[in-house]
Amino acid sequence: MNILLLLFAGFILGPAFLILALNFTRHNRVLRKRVELLITTFLISCACIAIFTTVGIVLSVLFESIRFFQAVPITDFLFGLEWSPQTAIRSDQVGSSGAFGAVPLFAGTFLITIIAMIIAVPLGLMSAIYLSEYATPMVRAFAKPLLEILAGIPTVVYGFFAALTVAPMIRRTADSLGFDVSSESALAAGVVMGIMILPFVSSLSDDVINSVPQAMRDGSYGLGATRSETIRKVILPAALPGIVGSFLLAVSRAIGETMIVVMAAGLAANLTANPFESVTTVTVQIVTLLVGDQEFDSPKTLAAFALGLVLFVITLILNVIALRVVRKYKEQYE
């Protein structure tokens, strides 16, 4: 605790002290060099904190996961079809092993992500195209900030909206059509999540489309193509790698999104592809397993870290690929 407070003071008061020291020693070359060395060390250590964070994430998630896999075989976890961790609260309990087959969670996450992408990709891409190719400066100045507001709304607000407004609306509509829809359907969470990542897709695609050189457009117009033909046949193919990169980033965000699914999707681990049924996701289970009083050594708590590891690895892979693709693409036209 005290060490921590010292660390705190170090990071907050340290810079102020160093800057003052630099001023006091400005007439003394030797002393100033020493202060400058200190400053450089401070700067480097700050830059390393980002590395430490990643290492910390990997280590903490990995260690707890390894402990989990000692209790539950990794193959059971990755390929098991049944998920019911709630039974494994106490070790002396009957049937205390619980079931930790995570396939229903992966399927649920996948289903909701697909629904979100079905909403976000066409809407986001078309908005980006409209904003960069068609919109008058006035429309652009008006519509772009509005879409950005959508990106700035906290996800807990979306979650509340999904659970309180969108889910009952879908249920009512389906009821009047004669369907039976769960009140925590994957559809409600997916649709709202799609709207949440719409501005994300649109602003990334907008960037990408804008970096396609004007000469390519002019060439196409010169051959007599209409604007939409130019967009579809010239700009989109040219921008495709970048657009795919932005989609991957959006997928990674949808997979890692927590609050919307915690509030609007269910807890029951159903293995289904039906969007009207209730499914659960990796993030929902991490939150449910960790909220409330818990023993840190029970497999139930450790399971959350194993899920976290899967989540981290998958999003990391998506991010690395996406960032590399986007970077390569931008270099191509620079």
Partner: peptide, 8 residues
């Protein structure tokens, strides 16, 4: 790190 899910 900027793209790691916040729950991590």
């Amino acid at each position: 790190l900027a793209a790691v899910p916040s729950i991590i």
